[in-house]
Design a protein around this nucleic acid. Structure first.
Lengths: 334, 334
DNA sequence: ATAGTTCGAGAAAGCGGTTTCACGCGTGGT
DNA sequence: ACCACGCGTGAAACCGCTTTCTCGAACTAT
């Protein structure tokens, strides 16, 4: 096959040190119990040859790669980036690395993408998958160890971390109602997204409880561009307050409204969802729901570590986002 | 060793289909030339057994993992996130995955971290490494294939993509000078960071050319917190304009100044660097230098692909960031 | 009918480690 | 002086896949 990479192999070190590969392996892994002078010799030869064990070969023999995958629907979203950042940091502390994948391009191949990436590592953290429940359930078995973020499912036996979108969006609606708004409009997230569905359900609950409030819905998306795009429709909707699917949409919307001469919050209130780092810096600062993304990433790793080491993971948790009232919401006009 | 993972192996498929593992391998890789009925039988057995080749074993045999590493000094920085996002997308199109690592925690082990992660994959994209030139040069050989972002070095034979911080910061300074500012203050980036050094060099050039302008320096950092922290010092510096190391710092500074009752840009102008997606949404919108991060990520992959496939990579490029004048800069007071 | 090709498919040798198991040696008990 | 035991070390099997090489069967040419 003759495909030498140039790097020294354990056999070469063994030969150079006059010992067997088994001994080199033991020395390299601090499992060597014999004569210290041998260990020393091996170590020095290893350094001379710039030997460093092939992680690949090691993984194959050991049956584990010390890597996990993190799959998100949109790597460009700060909310997911925050999770990735903390997940990666937490995993690194235990010697694990994370492999990323973004299913944005073609949500329809998400199951394939996930299966493929799962085979490259020891486990997968699936964040807010867009695939259907049926697909998710049927895939879950082959994905294990698996940690689910933002997509609890009692048919799946995997630790799950989630955010209570349903009650969260109601807090937002209540906040607006308290300010006197009676006509709200919700800019929806990506079609088929579970987290959008939860928000819609929450708003339905709310509306049921508050007959005096009307809530319209406008199709939107998950990015600032989507928010910008619906600005005119929002202005013309007759509503006095807009609930955006997330902060990104809210920021785009904010910008669009301002460009249209709509004053926020005097003419119209706007809310976001996520509390991404920049929500506090917009003009006006965005009223939103604070979701602890860093915490989610870190917790995901804790669950995962338990899983891969055969322990019983801590119980699932549902985070209740905290209402963060800032300047983008105010009393209803008139 | 007995560490069966439960997944079917090629040998099992071969046995079940009554052929040799070699044949199964050929069928799975579309390299099979023999009888079509055999291929069909193998495929059907593979499906029955839910067989999927071990990527690990495959990588070992093939001598390549189809994964690359992306190492940044701070995964929480939107500028690096943007590169990661586009790099990952571009690499995915060619069947490659990216492994991330953040050297923020302990910059001193950056060389170790990089070497370690390099051994897990086929190549590494090193972004704005904080390590010294000497370390970088001595490490480069063992890292190859290597693509460098934001850290050109003619002693290293690796494609490099960089941003002309040096002239960029001068554009910013010139912009401020044109507005009548005669006393500027630069909030420095992380100590020892090469990109900070380039900015400082640029400002030195500028000052040499423009004797009427004074430029002070204040130690800062690379995050919003760092910007917030120096707000008072900036206010008291006597300068009428502040150049922040990057947008994150600028945003923190903006906020800090506003909290202190300093009006931007009436009392003081503020500039950033990077043009992260949120720079346009701050209050006032941030004047900054637009760096094409997505482009950098995509280009990095193009270079990398050339490298791993043995072609000659396209020439190095130096991106000249574009001055993006927004609302955070204005005429000098008085 | 026999020798020379061609072609399909399997045996086996890697890839680079880890680990079990066995072997040889020195020690201690009787 | 002999046997059991312990201990350090190496041989070899194994992780799961790819690929070269080889061999035998089928097929053409004389």
């Amino acid at each position: 096959m003759k495909r030498r990479t140039g790097a020294a192999t354990i056999a070469e070190v063994a030969a150079a040190a006059g010992v067997s590969p088994a001994t080199v392996s033991r020395v390299m892994n601090d499992r060597f119990l014999g004569d210290a002078s041998i260990a020393e010799r091996v170590r020095s030869v290893a350094i001379d040859l710039a030997y460093s064990p092939s992680h690949l070969a090691r993984s194959l023999a050991l049956g584990q790669t010390s890597a996990i995958a993190f799959v998100v629907p949109d790597l460009a979203n700060p909310a997911f980036q925050a999770m990735l950042s903390s997940l990666s940091k937490a995993a690194a502390k235990d010697g694990y690395r994370v492999l990323v994948a973004d299913s944005a391009e073609s949500p329809s191949d998400e199951p394939l993408l996930v299966s493929e990436i799962r085979r490259r590592c020891d486990a997968v953290v699936l964040c807010a998958p867009r695939m259907s429940d049926a697909e998710l359930v049927s895939l879950a078995g082959s994905l294990r160890p698996l940690v689910l973020i933002n997509r609890a499912n009692d048919q799946i036996d995997a630790p799950s971390l989630s955010i209570d979108y349903r009650s969260g969006i109601q807090d937002l609606a209540q906040h607006l109602a308290d300010l006197g708004h009676r006509h709200l409009v919700f800019i929806e997230g990506p079609e088929g997204s579970a987290s959008n569905r939860h928000r819609v359900d929450g708003l339905d609950d709310f509306q049921r409880r508050s007959p005096g409030v009307r809530i319209d819905r406008i199709p939107g998306g998950a990015t600032s561009e989507d928010g910008l795009a619906v600005a005119a429709r929002v202005r013309d909707s007759g509503a006095t307050a807009a609930l955006a699917f997330n902060d990104l949409v809210a920021i785009g919307l904010l910008n669009g409204l301002i460009n249209l001469g709509v004053r926020v919050p005097e003419d119209m209130s706007v809310t976001g969802f996520d509390d991404i780092p920049f929500a506090r810096y917009t003009t006006p600062p965005l009223t939103t729901l604070s979701v602890p993304h860093e915490e989610l990433g870190a917790q995901a790793w804790h669950r995962m570590r338990a899983l891969v080491s055969g322990e019983k993971p801590e119980p699932n948790v549902v985070f209740h986002p905290r209402l963060e009232v800032r300047g983008s919401t105010g009393p209803a006009p008139r």
